[in-house]
Amino acid sequence: MTMRLVAENLSCERGGRRVFSDLALTLEAGRALAVTGPNGVGKSSLLRVLAGLVQPASGSIRIEDGDPELSAGEHCHYYGHLDALKPALSVLENLDFWTSFLAPGRTGARWQPMTPIEALEALGIDHAGDLPAAYLSAGQRRRLALARLLVVARPVWLLDEPTSALDAASEARLGELMSDHLAAGGMIVAATHQTMPLAEVGTLRLEAPA
């Protein structure tokens, strides 16, 4: 049995307003899903519901063949608009903290997390390892936040506008990392306006009713 992310009958309300209802999705290991649609239609809300950060008004989310000790959200990496970086800590201190703090979603031969140094190298910010994170540019901060996904093995990546503030080269690099993650049997759900730099992507389009 392969790992699958299954969400059924999901409804979400935020601040008393119904954002979406009766949404179902299934994602097999090794597949990616792009969530598209106009602004305010609930793309970010869907990701936060999948991450377990917003309680759905109805419906359920589960990871089949996952770690029974962990909730569905704890199988996920959430890469949102905020970088979760502390400017007063150095780049490596920031990354080291999340490396030891986040519980890995699943350990196995196919899920090889990088060391923090390797992750910084992979994203081209290893030269700044000992500098305070305050000195990084916006793009470098995004990449440091992204490094978190590489150092802790979790099967599902939830990416909210992953390419924002990244230049073309970094975007291509992100594409490679995402492909590697899928090749290792991972899953990706990305809310995005742009086409994702991936070969094979399913699409979930959230629409406002006419």
């Binding site: 601040g15 008393g16 307003r17 119904r18 954002v19 979406f20 209802s21 009766d22 949404l23 179902a24 999705l25 299934t26 994602l27 597949r31 899903l33 649609g37 305010g40 239609v41 609930g42 399913g202 699409t203 979930l204 389009r205 959230l206 629409e207 406002a208 009713p209």
Partner: peptide, 22 residues
């Protein structure tokens, strides 16, 4: 009343439905 006001404010966004799920 609050719910009705929120609905009035978001009448043009409304409820989203999935088009194609995989």
């Amino acid at each position: 009343l609050r719910t009705m006001q929120l609905q009035a404010a978001s009448a043009r966004v409304g409820v989203a439905t999935p088009q194609a799920a995989e």
